Amino acid sequence: MLTGRPIPSVLGMIEVEQLTQQYGARAAIQDLTFRVEAGEILGFLGPNGAGKTTTLRILAAAQPASRGTARIAGWDVHRQAQAVRQRIGYLPEIPPLYPEMTVQAYLSFVARLKGVVAGDRPQRLAETLQRCGLNDRAQTPIRKLSKGYRQRVGLAQAIVHDPPVILLDEPTVGLDPRQLQEVRSLIRSLAGEKTVIFSSHILSEVSQVSDRVVILNQGRLVTTTATRELLQQGGWHYRLEVSGDRNPLAVLQSLDGVQSVQMQAQTGDRWIISLTSQADQEIGAAIAATIQQQGGQLWELRRDRPSLEEIFLRLTAPVPLNPSEEPAE
């Protein structure tokens, strides 16, 4: 029997405030604060060991936090854990499958376990099998399924009871390109209908699925932003080919809005230079004007956005830690 009442949620379907998990002197996550709106798909990103799995376990009411609070649909994940478990679907990195059961028998068992009333089970099973592309595997023992189909069964057990919130921990690990596309399409189909946290360590993958991203590094929040805005955080990359009597490197380094300048090659009086601007600074005109002012000739000026991988690597660059602060997944 459930106790207590949900706390009215004015911020979002998922609310995390100052969440911290200590393992002795070591912090797996520290002071995390973020929210997820109803119907939003949130990409939960970070390198291995960043604290993604720890956070999802806490949100799934599978382990308590050392301190801080988290609420799902207004229910506190620690004090009202049973209410939270009834309102979430959780897919850990290794799906909780019973290999000797058939797909349909397993999903029927999960539906019963998660409180789907007997009269509703046939419809819920039929809808889930259809949605996850499992109709032609319904009577197949799970041990005979490929990894891609096992991931589908894992997703099916997370949604069979029609929860409003779904937590997916690295759901695409080990899948081939076709299986990746199928799982991504399934996750995208949940947008607007369910609130989803989808964890991964590959930014480009999450960008294809999520509305917004939260990036963790060594247990701490690095950034939370709309996926479409993430590229703007990386500034612009410029490639210049310049000729003249003077090396332009020093004068380019002094320009406002420049983050870094590197010499790539030099042949005679020609230089090839790589330049990166600060976040969202467009300085192409200033570069061209500077070269002309010092009497140089600009043969080429090419501008590109940094790749998602470059931005991710910059945001999650290792920082020095005390020996007692080594992060854990």
Rank of each mutant, 00 (worst) to 15 (best):
A28P: 01
L45K: 03
V214E: 00
P122V: 13
Q22L: 15
S146K: 02
T223P: 06
V153S: 00
R143N: 08
G148L: 05
E241G: 05
H161N: 06
A191W: 04
A28S: 10
A250T: 08
E329R: 07
L221N: 10
Q253Y: 08
G174R: 01
L255I: 13
E127I: 04
D76L: 14
L11C: 06
V110I: 15
I273T: 05
L134V: 09
T102C: 11
E170A: 10
S189I: 05
G174F: 01
P141R: 14
L168N: 02
V319E: 15
L230F: 05
V261I: 10
I41Q: 03
V160E: 06
V160D: 01
Q292V: 11
I142S: 04
Y238F: 04
D76I: 12
D31G: 15
L275N: 08
V84F: 07
P99G: 10
Q139F: 02
E282T: 08
V116C: 02
E93R: 09
A28R: 04
E93I: 08
T20E: 01
R79H: 03
L203Y: 05
S243F: 14
A50E: 04
L134H: 00
T224V: 12
L203W: 03
A28T: 08
Q218W: 07
V117N: 02
L59G: 03
D120F: 09
Q266D: 00
R137P: 00
T33K: 08
I142N: 01
I272F: 03
Q30P: 04
V196I: 10
M101S: 05
G46T: 13
T55M: 11
S146R: 02
A285M: 02
V77F: 14
P327I: 13
R220V: 08
L275E: 05
R270A: 14
T316Q: 02
Q293H: 13
E241Q: 15
Y106S: 07
I41R: 03
A158N: 04
R178H: 15
P92M: 04
T225D: 12
D211A: 07
K144G: 15
H161D: 01
E37G: 13
S307Q: 12
I94L: 14
A81S: 12
R228C: 00
V209T: 08
A61Q: 00
V103S: 00
I272T: 06
Q22W: 14
C132M: 09
E282Q: 14
A73F: 07
Q218R: 12
